[in-house]
Nucleic acid binder design. Structure first.
Lengths: 194, 194
DNA sequence: TTCCCACGCAACAACGTTGATGCAAATCAG
DNA sequence: CTGATTTGCATCAACGTTGTTGCGTGGGAA
């Protein structure tokens, strides 16, 4: 590509991406104008940095998916004990999802690239659940596809309810507590146990 | 209001509502043109029957909410044994949701009227879960708000995955099977039981 | 300090969508 | 059958959004 961006240009790009994520999270059909306003930038500047609305959304997708992949990786789903890995990845994903509510929530940001990452993650999840089932964490008669969908749904649900977390510390604690709740509900449901 | 609609007019209205539900389910921002096309009707006819896009969506909301309320009522949540009632209402709701994927899925169709019905249903659900908890169907330490959210999420998830059901009979069987799956997962999760 | 780049601002064309209107033809109801 | 109503079609104005361009200005980099 061209030479590195100047300081103010880089600042604009970051502001725009951040604003786009926030605005689109509340209204996926928000206009470029609204995004520019939230970014504290003129609309033309948005178009200067991102040729299309599509290009902007794809840029969001790239950032988000990269971070998601990263946070899944460092849970070591393939080696850690299933229950530990499950709790860790859940907390990590919840943390990421709270930042990328739009991009990771709406499939609008789907491009060939991101679709590939998705299927990779999905495959990894299925593989993990298979191992979890072999090691007795999941009931032997559980349909793994259903299990995966239930897990995703619970993570989503835990995310949506979570109100405003101010500082990063609070986000982390919240993510841990929610992860416990999600994993618990996922494995034992809400009925009486014992 | 005015006098009853003529036969062809009534047919148009029904066709438009049905078409709107289908089209909007796949693309919530679809144009009136697309809806008209799917209904086999000129766009002007749509505007003749529904002043606004908003009015059309509200009409959808009214129909859907009415049916939803009806199908919740005839599950007799307040008298039947909790497990029976839960299974029955789940099957009923799944059946309705498969028909009103857009209107009951996206909160776009929310008006003062529908919001009222929603809160009524939500209150009923919470009350039901409280009774279920007293009677031992839910663990005593379960947060009822969380339980409700999990239940809604599971119903949604069961709905989304359900591919194309051709005839009404198949829909009914499918709804029963899915209801069993949902209730089971809801109460016991996917971990080993025993 | 000096040069260059990025910015804000204003203006513009192109589009698609919405909503309204008039009219001729088809269709329903008494 | 006959009158009333509905519909399709063509047309029009109004809007909001998108994307582009040119210009003057202010802040970053060497």
């Amino acid at each position: 590509m061209g030479r590195p961006l100047r300081a103010d240009a880089a600042r604009s790009v970051r502001a725009i991406l951040e604003a786009a994520e926030q605005v689109l999270a509340e209204d996926p059909s928000a206009s470029m104008e609204q995004i520019a306003e939230q970014a504290g930038v003129a609309r033309t500047t948005v178009h200067r940095r991102f040729a299309n609305r599509q290009a902007l959304i794809e840029a969001l997708g790239a950032s988000a998916k990269r971070q998601l992949m990263e946070c899944v990786d460092d849970a070591h789903m393939d080696t850690a004990p299933p229950l530990v890995a499950l709790h860790r990845v859940t907390a990590n994903v919840l943390r990421i999802k709270s930042v990328w509510r739009f991009t990771l929530g709406h499939p609008l940001a789907d491009t060939p690239l991101t679709a590939e990452i998705w299927s990779e993650i999905n495959a990894g999840a299925l593989e993990f659940f298979a191992r979890a089932q072999r090691e007795g964490l999941l009931a032997p008669d559980t349909d793994l596809m259903w299990a995966r969908r239930v897990y995703y749904a619970l993570v989503d649900e835990a995310q949506h309810g979570g109100g405003a977390d101010r500082d990063p510390d609070q986000v982390r604690q919240n993510a841990d507590a929610l992860a416990t709740l999600v994993v618990d509900t996922f494995l034992r449901g809400v009925g009486p146990h014992g």
